[in-house]
Design a protein around this nucleic acid. Sequence first.
DNA 1: AGCACCACCTGTGGGC
DNA 2: TGCCCACAGGTGGTGC
Length: 273
Amino acid sequence: MPELPEVEVIRRELEPLLKGKVFAEPMLQMPSTIEYPSPELFAASLPGREINNLNRRGKYLIINLDRGILTVHLRMTGNLLYVDDDTVSEERFLRLSLPFTDGSALHYFDMRRFGRLWLTETQAELKEVVLKRIGPDILNDLCRDDFLELLGKRERSRIKALLLDQGFAAGMGNIYTDECLYRSGIDPKRRVQDLKKEEAEKLYQSILEVLAEGIKYGGTTFRDYRNARGALGDFQSRLAVYGRKDALCRCGASITKAKVAGRGTYYCPRCQK
DNA sequence: AGCACCACCTGTGGGC
DNA sequence: TGCCCACAGGTGGTGC
C-alpha cells in the first residue's frame, strides 16, 4: 500500500504528536508483527522509552527513541493510527496496541499481516538488521548526478524494475513509478542502457515532482491507505495512468495495462516510447 | 546481474 | 445469485 509519500505524510503528522511520549506496556494482538527482536523481548523492553523524533528512509518509518530505534514498515495494508485516548473503536485487523504513559496510543492495523516492526538498540544494529539492502532515499539522499551515476551501474535493467528495486533507491512503489514514467514519456519496458541522457534527467525531475505532489495531496488512497488520523489521501484523483485502464490519455490514446517487472503496469502507448 | 515464480495474507471485483 | 479466479500499494527467497 504505502509508498514514500504515504509514509512521509504519516511521519509529518506523527512527529509533533509523538515527540516526548513515553511508551507504556504494549499489547501484541499478533506477536508475529514484531520482526526483531523476539516479541517477548520487544514487549519487555519498550516500556519507559521516550520518543525523540521521526525519520524516514524510503518506505521505512524510523522512530528515534532516547534509547534505541523503533522501525515500522507498513507493506501492503498496514495502517498506523494515533488516538488521544487509548480506546479501540475498531478491533478488526488490529495487530498491535502501543499505549503511552499519558493515555494516548499508537495502534497498528493490518488486514494482510505483511507489515513488520523492529526495535534495535543502535544505528549500527538498525543498518545491519533492518536496512541492510536498502539504498539511499530517493527524495532526500539522491541528487540528480548521483541518480544518473547509479543508473549507469544498472544498464541492463528494465527501468520499471530498477525504480521498484529498493536497493537501487528507496521509496518508489508501483503507483508512483507508473506516474513518473508517464510524465517523463518513457515506456516502462525500456532498458536503462537505451535511455538518452535527457530522458534520464527528465525521469529524475518527474520523480521529484510526483513524490512532492503525492505528499502535498496527502498520499494516494487506492483502497486501504489512511493517514495517522484515519483520513484518506487525495492524490488518487490526480493519477494520470495508474488504475486507469481504457481511460483516455489527453493525447486521445487509451491507457494500456500490461505486466512489467511482475507488476500490473499502466501506461500510454502513444506518449511513452 | 536480471528476471520469473512463489510465498506470505485477506479481501474484492470481474467474468461466467 | 453465486462461485472461482485473478489481482491488490511490498518484499524475500529460490533457481535459472
